[in-house]
Amino acid sequence: MAVVDVELKIKRYNPEQDKKPHWETYEVRVEDTDRVVDALHEVKWHHDGTLSFRRSCVHGVCGSDAMVINGSNALACVLLVKDVGTNITVEPIRGLRVIKDLVVDMEPFFDQYKSVLPYLINSTDPGYEERRQSPEDRERFDDTTKCILCAACTTSCPIYWGNESYVGPAAIVNAHRFIFDSRDEAAGDRLDILNQRSGVWRCRTAFSCTEACPRDIKITQAIQEVKRAILYNRI
């Protein structure tokens, strides 16, 4: 652990004052084991209280603080200063409207999530016992249950930047989570939704989403599994 001086270059935009975004630079003293979010807090708390960014759990499970850090999507509470260096640039995630500073409009992202029926659908009465599921069947969709809806994947996708009707990787991940759950009965409906123009076929397997995911979900693989399920009508 060492004390370091960090130069933070942050893309700022205040809709009440600015016509367009601009960069501002701050010098802050932090420990190299601090998180990027700690450096942002240092700016906010002791240099410039007008800086706005979302954050909550600050350890990578709530998904509030996805941003572009040194050019790549990440959660500010998962990256440490020593891992990103002492010159840090921070921008809002791309593809969603910037409201203020690092705060973007999440509504389109959640609307796309909701469009894939992200809840268990099963019309049979299970009675008073749990539905049975083998450990193998449970493992089938384990990876995609990890999603925290931070939008790091979707807003790293070059297709999404150019076409906001594309549902995006996060929505597909959450569809995958139910399509491959042996207890669910609506895989066909979700596959129909993802077979539309806005669905999985927009994906060009750029792997940006997989690289951006702070939960290490194999997103590109999940998208490929959904494509295959549509093509071969088999789960």
Binding site: G49, S52, F53, I99, K100, D101, V103
Partner: peptide, 9 residues
Amino acid sequence: QDKGAVFNY
């Protein structure tokens, strides 16, 4: 410091 209305954390 922030006297604004929008996302004034």
